[in-house]
Amino acid sequence: MDNLVRLGVRYPVFKAKNTNIAVQIYSQLFGLENTTSVEMFDALVIKNSHASDNGFVLVRNSPTLSYSFLTTSNCIHHTLRLKNSGFSCTEPPISTTLGLASKFQDELGNVIILLEEREYS
């Protein structure tokens, strides 16, 4: 039988008040141009129309804020990109044993950690 971890996490989840604005912001963040939205329970799943492996989820009435780890091939590049998109950088890129990481918050307080995984051995 498969272990739970093998089920995997499909999309990062963010709390959103105004989903129209949030769709624009996060689509830009993930570089999604042609998106499809699917209503599911309290959530709105936004995914790339062509590549099904790229997307995110917005939750309207979530009691908790989200804390998402996003991996990137270049933390510095994406840190500047997020800053330019209006995200507030609460921790500039720092070296960790996993790699280079920076921390952001959006207007609602959703936390995003950008992680560029690095092999130090």
Partner: peptide
């Protein structure tokens, strides 16, 4: 380490 990654970027 980080130096290598940075210069490769």
């Amino acid at each position: 380490g980080d130096m290598k990654y940075n210069i490769m970027h």
